[in-house]
Amino acid sequence: MPSSVPLVDLSPWFAGTSEGRAEVAGRIDQALRESGFLLVTGHGVPDELRHRTRELAREFFALPEDVKQRYAVTVGGRGWLPPGVEANGYAEGTETPPDLKESYSAGADTRTGVAEVDGFWFQPNVWPHEVPGLGEAATEYMRRMRALADHLLEIFAAALGLAQSHFTRHTGHPTYTFNINWYPPMTHVGPPAPDQFRIGPHTDFGTVTVLDRQAGVGGLQVCTADGEWADAPFHPEAFTVNIGDLMARWTGDRWRSTRHRVLPRPRRHPTKTSCR
């Protein structure tokens, strides 16, 4: 059965020819109508930066818990999100066990001068002194990913027959977030409770999400148009991209904001389960 998550090479868009740009925009329109998810290559983000950010993050998550606790925050804060503080299933109004993960959270920190806004959306990023270089690498990574997100929004506009700046004219001061997720081994967290996941079923709420997945881990599933959970494909050079509820609403639901989840452990054999 072919994957419901297509692979799109962005190189023709960046090459700048009208034919290449039209082809990329058309493929992305089809992907977001049918799946809401796609893989993108030709994005221009250096592999070395991706690998360095991941390796430095691993050093942080390997620190003793009492050291990580110095950077502990709750959801919405900047720093370490310990095990048990987040349950994504609640986003759908469903009471679920906490997600089986830890995260390090950062994001936009260019303040507006409005205390009520800055206090939540533009908190200063905090980086662990115990892992020199993580802050520098992650900040550069965020800069490159922010630029890629804007390029994707330009492609989205073209795919909808709109002016290229239709979305990006509103993203000069975005409230983006950046989460580094660590999924501890099951030997560390123990057997999952009923309906417990690495990340519980949910849709994203914003415009566009760009996910850099680790090779060989698996577990990400998306809800297909037929209402079945399907394993998301992986490509070592690709980012996984999906849209959120806001972008779907902006398109009059032409594009899908698709439910997704991360299984506690990859399945050994494919089985069909409903996600409706």
Rank of each mutant, 00 (worst) to 15 (best):
residue 5 V to E: 08
residue 255 W to E: 06
residue 43 H to C: 10
residue 274 S to I: 03
residue 201 P to R: 08
residue 246 L to H: 09
residue 30 Q to W: 00
residue 108 A to Y: 15
residue 6 P to Q: 06
residue 103 S to C: 15
residue 146 R to M: 11
residue 257 S to E: 13
residue 194 P to E: 09
residue 263 L to P: 01
residue 117 V to E: 15
residue 63 L to S: 03
residue 47 D to S: 13
residue 13 W to M: 10
residue 105 S to K: 11
residue 122 F to Y: 15
residue 252 G to N: 12
residue 70 R to K: 10
residue 139 T to D: 10
residue 181 N to M: 09
residue 270 P to W: 06
residue 85 V to P: 01
residue 30 Q to F: 01
residue 203 T to L: 11
residue 123 Q to L: 14
residue 254 R to I: 03
residue 274 S to K: 06
residue 72 A to C: 07
residue 26 G to Q: 05
residue 26 G to A: 02
residue 206 G to T: 14
residue 206 G to F: 12
residue 113 G to F: 04
residue 58 R to W: 06
residue 154 E to H: 05
residue 99 D to L: 11
residue 162 L to A: 12
residue 115 A to V: 02
residue 239 F to D: 09
residue 82 P to K: 14
residue 70 R to S: 02
residue 188 H to F: 08
residue 172 G to Q: 14
residue 94 T to W: 04
residue 50 R to N: 04
residue 153 L to R: 07
residue 212 D to F: 05
residue 7 L to E: 08
residue 11 S to M: 07
residue 23 E to H: 06
residue 37 F to R: 00
residue 142 M to C: 14
residue 251 T to M: 11
residue 87 A to D: 09
residue 59 E to Y: 03
residue 223 C to R: 04
residue 96 T to W: 11
residue 41 T to W: 05
residue 21 R to Y: 01
residue 108 A to N: 10
residue 250 W to T: 04
residue 24 V to D: 06
residue 134 L to G: 02
residue 18 S to R: 06
residue 17 T to D: 09
residue 275 C to N: 06
residue 132 P to E: 06
residue 164 Q to D: 14
residue 98 P to D: 08
residue 186 M to A: 14
residue 42 G to F: 07
residue 133 G to T: 12
residue 261 R to H: 04
residue 91 A to Q: 12
residue 274 S to L: 07
residue 209 T to C: 14
residue 220 L to D: 02
residue 102 E to H: 11
residue 185 P to L: 05
residue 127 W to V: 03
residue 30 Q to M: 03
residue 47 D to C: 05
residue 168 T to S: 10
residue 10 L to N: 01
residue 114 V to H: 07
residue 69 Q to M: 05
residue 171 T to D: 11
residue 103 S to Y: 02
residue 138 A to G: 08
residue 91 A to I: 12
residue 256 R to P: 07
residue 210 V to F: 11
residue 240 T to S: 04
residue 225 A to C: 00
residue 227 G to P: 06
residue 186 M to L: 15
residue 210 V to D: 03
residue 209 T to H: 12
residue 27 R to F: 01
residue 129 H to L: 03
residue 59 E to C: 07
residue 93 G to T: 04
residue 92 E to S: 10
residue 216 G to I: 02
